[in-house]
Design a protein around this nucleic acid. Structure first.
Lengths: 376, 376
DNA sequence: GAAACTTATGGAAAGGTTTCCTGAACCAGG
DNA sequence: CCTGGTTCAGGAAACCTTTCCATAAGTTTC
């Protein structure tokens, strides 16, 4: 095996067709003569054995400084890169991590993905993306056909219910798993403390003096794990109860977890002046923003006539002056990566607890204020 | 390092510990008895040779119906899955495609990623995600260290400038490449016809009778390829010129490609009644929505006092009644996948043209109307 | 000055597939 | 009955690393 691939220098034109031609020419050129160099070539160029090349390049085992220099020089000259297939065939490690995520195009999920990606790349792992909705057959297809196919070293599941059988299958293959979002049956998971976050938000409103508060939560759709909704509702009710404020079925409304969802419910809720609360706790910032937009349209001043608080600290929240309980999905992603990587790199290690709560904090802006004193 | 800076409080809820115990039990179970079966085991269980198993399972070559049944039965019983490392070591194919994308958490990019992912998974390929900002060193790190590492069969680059040297490197390795978004030097790319889309939007305003139109485009940041901005500006100016309408430096404003960006520039532009145009063509829906929000805040009625049109058909556009020129980033992603897969599966094939234009269409809503007849 | 380490290197085996080559069985046509 | 083509199956080579084992030189210790 020899490296016959001579470097091709070609002037690139700006025009589209010319660029295309350039590209086609490269294509055919490729067909003619491309050979990629292997470890053998590097070894002979550096005047050492394959074993030494492997050690020099991977940094494992004894290699003298000069030899290492010679080898890496030769490798660089030949443009050598290890075949990850061959490498992982013998080591049993693929160096990539599968990420199952139900949606991408939504702030929460996108941020998680960004965090996971960053953390993974930092540590030299590749990320295999499986964007799987919650339908059972899609998920099991991914599980059976893709994930298990010995292509990933570990799995990070975002807000995805995994059946015990599936968990067992993965763990049975010795692959670390971590979850983000909902509590996943039997696998360590990181998320915020939804109950506490909701309590914090509600307490903020209570502290301001609000007594008439409505919670707008998510409905059971595919957007989120339904646990999120029930927990945030729970925190809300807990706070009310602790403050000795009665609540009934009118204290809670469900809608889609996005701006239009909040807008719809806002219009509906605020349209009737008699039913209008003095404050709304939305389970997500996007919902809160939708509520604010509805309020504006109805001529209801925020925060003078209505206080609104959300959860997330969404990028748009600042623009709307939205008071919110911040969470950082990207850091949750990084945390999950930490877990699986550590399990990968020091076998036997496992998280101390089945669950880690990511920090949250109250971000006060201009959408909350004491309720307007009752006029006569 | 990631989580070290952000303390995570750990709590053991009742259910949490149960889950953990379950998980740990699985762990130890693993240590005791896991053995993964290889092709050899399947062969002996089915009473045939490894070669036959391979043929039966991959569907290549002659295998009798009964043998195939026996083999797949045995494979299923043993829970056998092929080692993709071993497989790709000999075939030279990894069956996954690398996707380089500058951002994830933005509608345009998220949609592309969703489309690419869907198309790839449909065809049995895995997607390796590289979320790379435009900084040179990050990009080259990905190129040199990850992509080229023989881990992907093809590359899809989203809105990323690739240097000729990098292109050459990839093509030199025989890996198909396709781009989405900006015109990439020397590689086939799919995108909308930005000039035409901008012209279409502008012509819509002109047709309604507007003469005083301002274009709000993107500034040169990392959000988008700057070609997008210049092309949409070009289409805008072309339409004005064709209609015989003069334009000057006041006809164009640049801002960030998001809602706050549009809001800022909207406030600034609409704040001064003398400078206020009758219509605004925003280069992106998010910018247009920001403008609408600014207008609302200033008491300017859309579309009575101001028409606004955008490009994208963003999910929020419907809620804001925004007239827009629709594009489908997900379909562009699928198109790019088509290209690379076809090149992979029928060697020698290459796209007819260096560029494909994805379709756009005008979606009329309530944000545009004829200008208010001049009073006074 | 010998024994015991440590450091440096090479040869060879191993890892799990796919595919090439070969041969057997079967069938149709002459 | 022989030939040639097709279908089926097995043995063995090949794919490219990493790692185990062996060897050898250099260094420390008693």
């Amino acid at each position: 095996m020899t490296c016959s691939g001579h470097p091709v220098t070609v002037a690139l034109a700006a025009s589209g067709t010319r660029a295309l031609r350039f590209w086609k020419r490269l294509q055919t050129k490729v067909d003619e003569e491309v050979t990629v160099s292997g470890i053998e070539d590097v070894a002979s160029l550096a005047g050492v054995s394959k074993a030494t090349v492997s050690r020099a390049l991977s940094g494992r085992g004894y290699v003298s400084v000069e030899t290492r220099a010679k080898v890496s020089d030769a490798a660089h000259r030949l443009g050598y890169v290890v075949s990850s297939s061959a490498s992982s065939l013998v080591t049993g490690r693929t160096n990539n991590v599968g990420v199952i995520i139900p949606r991408i195009n939504q702030w929460f999920f996108g941020s998680i993905l960004e965090g996971v990606e960053r953390a993974l790349l930092d540590r030299g792992y590749d990320l295999m993306l499986y964007n799987v909705s919650k339908t059972v057959e899609e998920r099991s297809k991914v599980f059976e056909y893709f994930l298990v196919r010995k292509r990933v070293d570990a799995v990070i599941a975002v807000t995805l219910e995994i059946t015990p059988a599936e968990t067992e299958r993965l763990v049975g293959l010795g692959k670390p798993i971590a979850g983000i979002g909902g509590p996943l049956e039997g696998i360590p998971t990181v998320s915020i403390d939804d109950v506490a976050a909701a309590r914090l938000a509600t307490e903020h409103l209570l502290l301001l003096g609000h007594r008439d508060i409505v919670h707008v939560g998510g409905d059971v759709d595919e957007q989120m794990d339904f646990h999120v909704h029930s927990k945030r509702l729970k925190g809300f009710l807990e706070a009310l109860t602790a403050a000795g404020i009665p609540h009934d079925e009118n204290s809670y409304l469900a809608t889609r977890f996005d701006i239009p969802g909040g807008y719809r419910v806002g219009k509906q809720l605020l349209g009737d002046p008699r039913r209008r609360p003095t404050a709304i706790f939305a389970a997500a910032d996007e919902v809160a923003i939708g509520v604010i937009l509805a309020a504006r349209e109805l001529g209801i001043s925020v925060p003078d006539d209505l206080s609104v608080i959300g959860i997330d600290n969404h990028p748009l929240s600042d623009m709307f002056g939205l008071t919110t309980v911040e969470q950082r999905p990207d850091l949750q992603g990084e945390h999950a990566v930490d877990w699986v990587i550590r399990q990968l790199e020091q076998p036997g290690w496992s998280p101390d607890a089945g669950h880690a709560f990511a920090p949250t904090r109250l971000v006060m802006r201009s959408s909350t204020a004491p309720p307007r004193p009752r006029t006569g």
